[in-house]
Simulated assay, not measured.
Amino acid sequence: MRFGTFIPQGWRFDLVGIDPADQWHAMSALAQRADAGPWESLWVYDHFHTTPVASQEATHEAWTLMAAFAASTSRIRLGQMCTCMGYRNPAYLAKVAATVDVISGGRAEMGIGAGWYQHEWEAYGYGFPEAPERLKMLREGVEIMRQAWTTGQATLDGTYYQVDGAIVQPQPLQDGGIPMWIAGGGEKVTLKIAAKYATYTNFTGTLEEFDHKSDVLRGHCDTLGRDFSEITRSSNFDTIVGETEADAEDRLAAVIARVRPFVQDEHADRIERGIRRSDGFGSVEQVTEKLARKGEHGLGYAIHYFPEAAYDTSGIELFEREVIPALS
């Protein structure tokens, strides 16, 4: 199994209490720590407003962070989980990503999805198209990016995007362009797009749901004549790991106590329930066992979000010391 880690950027109230002037230092230090550690990749979210409620707390922009991490790290790969197709013109996004790839020496990943956070869509003036339209935007945008990275320019007279000889130079350094992570588990459209374009997929759920989505993806690959094994399946995990169950509970309590003043109690309780359900929550033994079982069912890449990262790295250190070596 391969491993990635999220860098806190404020979106999930994971930089509260840190002065905004000092938040880049906190993020950069964690990125450099990951760069020196066992992680294959670091990740950020592509969102503008905090969740589960919008607030005035800082949320740092994903692709700006990509460029900053590209210049301030040396080894680790750089991804977003996931870029919202509707937030940027796809030819422009292809250009931005190619530049990040060059700055990083060929370490960029492209996590891309249809988007879902209605509040920020509308607040930023993007409207909020119905899901079928957002998925069609995703399909057109992915085609434009693939053209741009393989030919140096893109032309598409689409329903949602029209580009005519858009030049994307410099080209990404990676052969074949930047790897595509198609995020989402929509069975009729998203997984079909993934079967055609993705190097990686990213969807979550129970073991039974993971198996079902995998079977749907395999079916789309068979229809298109693509080898299913070419696509690495990944999932994201909210991760709080302790030496013991009691240690994990104490860590979770500290996280919830930190965010509760910024969200309503019902949201804080929902966050707590979500973390408890995650395969990344529990003692070292519990987390290792749950992830190993997912690996036996085809999970090839686990991306971990540590909500305590900006305040306490001891849980990350424990995961690096005990869990990663057992599963790598």
Score class of each variant (00 low, 15 high):
I275Q: 05
E208Q: 13
A268N: 12
Y161K: 03
E209V: 04
Q171E: 09
W43I: 02
E296N: 14
M66D: 07
I193Q: 03
D22Q: 07
D312Q: 12
R273Q: 15
E317G: 12
L224P: 08
E61A: 11
V241S: 00
Y117N: 06
T232I: 13
T223Y: 06
R12T: 02
G185Y: 01
R33S: 11
G280E: 08
R88E: 11
F237T: 00
Q153V: 06
L291K: 09
R139W: 14
A94F: 11
D238W: 03
T204D: 11
E320P: 12
A257W: 15
W181N: 00
M137E: 06
H47F: 01
L78A: 04
D222L: 01
M81G: 08
M81W: 00
V53D: 13
R88H: 10
D19G: 01
I256A: 13
W24D: 08
V163N: 01
A148S: 08
G300Q: 09
P307D: 09
G37I: 04
R293N: 12
A31R: 04
E130K: 15
A26H: 05
K196L: 12
A29W: 02
V100I: 09
Q32K: 08
A248Q: 00
I76K: 06
Q169R: 13
S74W: 12
E57F: 13
G4N: 02
Q153I: 03
E130Y: 14
E133Y: 12
R88M: 02
T313K: 00
H220K: 03
Q169S: 15
A21C: 11
V323K: 08
Y124E: 11
D175S: 11
R75G: 10
E209C: 13
F128G: 14
G79C: 00
V255T: 01
A67D: 10
D279Q: 03
E317W: 05
Q264G: 11
W63V: 07
V100N: 06
K290V: 13
D222I: 00
E317N: 05
A62R: 02
L327S: 06
P52R: 03
F306C: 03
V241K: 09
G4Y: 10
E289N: 11
A154T: 04
Q147F: 13
L30Q: 01
R260G: 05
K213Q: 01
A68W: 06
Q32D: 10
P129M: 05
A198W: 07
E140T: 01
Y87I: 02
S41L: 03
R270N: 15
E187H: 08
I324T: 10
A21H: 13
G186P: 13
D14G: 02
K95V: 09
T99Y: 15
T288V: 04
L42A: 02
E61V: 10
R107F: 08
G86N: 07
